[in-house]
Computed example of a mutant assay.
Amino acid sequence: MLRRLYDWTMSLAGRPSAEIWLAVIAFVESSIFLVPADVLFLPMALAKPHRVWRYALVATVASVLGGIAGWAIGYYAFETVAKPILEFYGKLDAFDKLRSGVTYETIVLLLVTSGLAHLPPIKVVTILSGVANVNLGLFVISAIIARGARFFFLAWLLRRYGEPIRHFIEKRLGQIAAVVAAVLILLYIAFHMLAR
């Protein structure tokens, strides 16, 4: 099923309505969808490099709006909407573990790491932010920074290196982003240990 979903998402890149689909995928990725918007963003940016910055902006804005929708689902409709979504994707156990040990600072860190590296998946963190009643303004600012950094960094790589970087991004960007996320988490832990 996941492979078909991935292939379908890739097929959208060649359509005249690709930019609208990019916004839709980026929006739903942040609240309920499994396939990241990068899958559509990459071929679109390579096909029309002169529009890469526009695509990054569209993806960022739509992703942040989708994150707000995820926050609202967590805040207003956890039992009726969020819980079944998390169960469907097999993420409810991970969510419950995060929920039990979460602090305000932890959620902000998770917003940044999930926005940059999908660790944990962004939809889990947006819903968790609503459940934990994270300040919506802080949530939006964190989402703009994290999601904007991801899409604009991808745009810069694609603009600078073009097609040769595509294979690197598809195979290695997740690993690099995971390392950056791990470093952020370690710095956070070290800061709190030194502060005690």
Rank of each mutant, 00 (worst) to 15 (best):
M1R: 15
M1S: 15
M1H: 15
R3K: 11
R3W: 07
R3I: 09
Y6D: 04
D7K: 06
W8D: 05
T9M: 09
L12E: 12
A13R: 13
A23F: 07
V24F: 04
I25C: 03
I25A: 03
I25L: 04
I25F: 05
F27R: 10
E29A: 03
S30K: 04
S31I: 02
F33I: 12
F33K: 11
A37V: 10
A37H: 07
A37I: 12
D38I: 14
V39L: 04
F41V: 10
F41W: 15
M44I: 09
A45Y: 03
A45I: 00
L46P: 10
A47T: 00
R51N: 08
R51F: 07
W53P: 12
W53N: 12
W53C: 12
R54T: 06
Y55R: 09
Y55A: 08
V58E: 10
A62L: 15
A62G: 14
L65E: 10
I68T: 09
I68F: 09
A72W: 15
I73C: 13
I73S: 13
Y75L: 15
Y76W: 11
F78P: 00
T80S: 13
V81Y: 01
A82N: 00
A82E: 00
I85N: 04
I85W: 03
I85V: 11
E87F: 04
K91T: 09
L92V: 08
L92W: 08
A94K: 06
D96W: 03
L98F: 03
R99C: 02
S100M: 07
S100T: 08
V102R: 06
V102P: 06
T103N: 06
T103C: 04
T103S: 13
E105Y: 07
I107D: 02
V108N: 07
L110C: 03
L111V: 08
V112W: 03
V112Q: 02
S114E: 08
S114V: 06
G115F: 08
G115V: 06
G115I: 07
H118A: 14
L119C: 10
P120V: 01
K123Q: 01
I127F: 00
L128F: 00
S129I: 02
V131F: 04
N133Q: 12
L136P: 07
L138A: 08
L138G: 03
L138C: 01
L138N: 05
I141E: 12
S142C: 10
A143N: 04
I145G: 14
I145K: 13
R147D: 12
G148P: 02
F151T: 01
L154Q: 06
L154P: 05
L157Q: 09
L158H: 03
R159L: 05
R160E: 11
R160I: 04
G162P: 01
I165N: 05
I165F: 08
H167M: 12
I169S: 08
E170G: 13
E170A: 14
K171C: 00
R172K: 14
R172W: 15
L173Q: 03
Q175F: 10
A178F: 13
V179D: 01
A182E: 01
V183P: 00
L184T: 10
I185K: 02
I185E: 04
L187W: 05
I189A: 15
I189S: 11
M193Q: 13
A195Q: 15
R196L: 15
R196E: 14
